[in-house]
Nucleic acid binder design. Sequence first.
DNA 1: TTTCATGTAACAATAATAGTTACGAATTAT
DNA 2: ATAATTCGTAACTATTATTGTTACATGAAA
Lengths: 124, 124
Amino acid sequence: MTSDDLARCLDTNAVVVRRTMAGLRDAGIVQSGRGHGGGWHFARPLAEISLLDIYNALGEPIVFQIGPATEMPGCVVEQSVNRVIGDALKDAEAILMARFAGTTLADLAADFRAAAKRCRTDTG
Amino acid sequence: MTSDDLARCLDTNAVVVRRTMAGLRDAGIVQSGRGHGGGWHFARPLAEISLLDIYNALGEPIVFQIGPATEMPGCVVEQSVNRVIGDALKDAEAILMARFAGTTLADLAADFRAAAKRCRTDTG
DNA sequence: TTTCATGTAACAATAATAGTTACGAATTAT
DNA sequence: ATAATTCGTAACTATTATTGTTACATGAAA
């Protein structure tokens, strides 16, 4: 698909699409081609692309808004909070990342197809 | 402490302090007094105030930036992503909340005091 | 009744994100 | 070659969310 097509699908702008896709391209998840017939395509089979790959490619600080605070490096209260909360955050993140690593785009596609089938059946 | 004192400690403004403290007050974690000798104080012992209490009082959407997306309610792709990711997020959140629930301000204060003691010892 | 402190509304400043325009570089069709 | 595409990217604008500020009302204590 071209950036323009994707932009229409996502209700946004082609440049915005390129900005985001650039991260995925740099991570080797997708590839882009220029000129006629160009656009975006996956760099490898869906079963070999995990959500963790994508998560890492797009920049990590998306999920965990809080985390070791660093606003006031010298603040001893903040340091205590970081110590006490740190482990809990690490555990929670580890669980999430493990699940991300174990889920591929092929899994997503399978779920999508199953839902589409149910929908068709429901409608008759 | 007064909002002004807190604002100086936190390098911010008294009104901003009041805005945040209002949430904690509504949750019964702190109380405020007006006039001479007024200001903020805890509503109950530190050992009876968990981080979960505070987390809930300040509004939950702080930690989990992503989560069941709701931008395009009709988007079937989004629905698939939500299904597949949903459980992982719930598990991760459950772990974090359990740890928050099990940690009180008294625990934080103990850690703080221990650190302060180490610091004094280090310095001689 | 004066002083001090919170409560809150209204507004301004700031920062982060998203969107837009413009143009260059690469690729393919004609 | 030349024209039509399409990505790459810089520069700028628009939008939104957060934070900070001002102003004034309310309540409490000296």
